[in-house]
Amino acid sequence: MDDGLSSGTEAAAPIRVVLTKLGLDGHDRGIKVVARILRDAGMEVVYLGLRQTTDSIVAAAVQEDADAIGLSMHNAGHMTLAPAMLKAMAEAELEIPLVVGGIIPEDDVQSLSDAGVAVVLGPGAPSEEVVNSVRAAVAAA
């Protein structure tokens, strides 16, 4: 049946990413730059802004049917906050990748990966790496 009605709007749907800061950390230069990088790569970025809780992030990811959650962390709290985020996602049965970016020392990258963080982006990660790693993580999920 090729009447046009079926195939009308079907196209490669953009990846949808919920992008946010968890906790009190207000450093938002990086997350804003990443938001634009992802938009310019054709993704839809649902920007939650500052001071979110794990619950509010999960609620947004559910309602937005996000393909991934991106967290930006600059306060050395990543070893506490990233696992808390993963736990909240697991409790809500959200089977989507968690991408963490910010000031993450090399030594912590492995621990975060072991805990279940899909991608860790360090300071100064180039745009292509940001985009490609989000795409890869979404494709693998």
Binding site: P14, A35, R36, L38, R39, D40, A41, G42, M43, E44, V45, V46, Y47, L48, G49, Q52, S56, A60
Partner: peptide
């Protein structure tokens, strides 16, 4: 240009 979007309305509905 790119088909992407930044959707920020939730911030005000927190």
């Amino acid at each position: 240009l790119t088909g992407g979007a930044i959707l920020g309305d939730r911030v005000r509905m927190a």
